[in-house]
Design a protein around this nucleic acid. Structure first.
Lengths: 241, 241
DNA sequence: TCAAAAGTGTTTGAGCTACACCCATGG
DNA sequence: CCATGGGTGTAGCTCAAACACTTTTGA
């Protein structure tokens, strides 16, 4: 457990991650639920060690929750209004968990740490959902993928953060060729299209979409996918490295 | 002077501002020089009060240096690698200014404050250069506008920050109609074009540029500018509010 | 009436949209 | 050989680039 007594963490600064995954035509976000009494969902968050760059810190936090290294991630915005978390919300949580905290093996500074003002650096990450083994930290009760349209109410401004993260993802999906980070190694054109449709929440045209993607000259065909269905077998594509 | 003893500031977090101005076909950046011995230039920087949002803080810092309120500004990136400032550079500055600091009316924690690790939120601002009266703070020796292509070497990663800020400005100039923040109330089409050419460091075609701008339907003609030159008088335009 | 610079019109081409058509697969 | 869905071709549209032309101003 992180020792909140030692001055090994940067104070008042946190990292909140919006971890995007994609499955079954739906864009999803990985959201843990805290083990505190009452229903408290939150984005995967963490702090920054003194000897650690912020990108490193984000990577560490992501690896802990997803089990994979080499995740694509990018900072997109800082959230630093004051107050971001209402006192009412905090007090409600503290009240509910009074006895809970008393028996926890956290050191004395934990609550003091938790209730100070935080400025948060927002990162979003893109992962192949099949490679992720969602991982509980010591403050999580559960961790699950939620459809982006069906997110639970999260603490502080975390729901708002997802809105900004999605906006950033949309702006970069094309220009930085990010889509492939959300798909498995090989995929059909239709799957890629459905991913785009999930991200932008609007339909694309089959033929034009294919042309646009192939014109980028970053895809290579690696075979056909015989599905057993009574129709032409779609080609499989892979992202050229 | 800010009291570095009191815990009224957020620790280890700073705001660095790239203040863009435009004059005589050149994009410029406002850069103060510290009064320390040795040549130390730096971006206008400041810290965040506990009771203050980060946007508020940036506004306050900008107002202090430029004398104007209601500046357009936007956060564009966080700089949080470690170490951002080399120990060599810091030691060199401290060595040079040893006696200097001794006689300064800063409190004892100043040096400790100054030499800790900082994570910096990068803001860029756009100002009408004619409205600015550059303002010295107590740690400035001078403050001047520099052409973006002729910036002095700045401390830490500040030169690199300008590169990122310019990149962000380029991405947003069109989509968010930011150009008008850099010009006086009324301007000719040619002046607007030259601003674009300064920002993107490339030429635009007169007729196509005009068409593109007018098609945005955000400009209104407010008269002609009789320059006394032996040619057709250009129209003056104003940004519709 | 001429030079200089502002302003407008028109053709060309690239890229996207939409419709129509062809191809492979299993029953 | 047919239904199904994948894949391709092409005409039409839109927007921006490139070129040519007209207009205004002061000498």
């Amino acid at each position: 457990m992180i020792n909140y007594n030692e001055k090994n963490l940067v104070n008042q600064l946190s990292i909140d991650c919006v971890i995007f995954g994609y499955q079954q035509k739906e864009l999803k976000v990985l959201v843990p639920k805290l083990f505190f009494k009452g229903d408290f969902w939150t984005l995967p968050s963490g702090f920054i060690f003194q000897e650690e760059g912020i990108d490193e810190a984000a990577k560490r936090i992501l690896e802990q929750r997803t089990g994979i290294k080499d995740i694509f991630l990018e900072q997109y915005r800082v959230f630093g209004n004051v107050p971001r978390t209402t006192h009412a919300a905090l007090n409600s949580m503290l009240e509910l968990n009074k006895s809970h905290f008393d028996t926890l093996k956290v050191n004395d500074n934990f609550l003091e740490w938790l209730t100070q003002r935080f400025i948060s650096i927002g990162y979003y990450a893109l992962v192949d959902i099949n490679k992720v083994v969602p991982n509980l930290t010591e403050i999580d009760q559960s961790i699950e993928w939620y459809n982006i349209s069906e997110l639970p109410p999260m603490i502080s401004d975390h729901n708002q953060q997802v809105v900004f993260a999605l906006e950033a993802l949309r702006q970069n999906l094309d220009s930085k060729l990010l889509g492939f980070n959300l798909l498995p190694e090989e995929f059909t054109m239709k799957e890629l299209q459905q991913l785009y449709e999930a991200v932008y929440a609007k339909p694309f045209r089959r033929n034009n979409f294919q042309k646009k993607m192939l014109d980028l000259e970053v895809l290579e065909r690696v075979g056909k996918k015989l599905t057993g269905a009574a129709n032409k077998a779609p080609y499989l594509y892979r992202f050229k490295r």
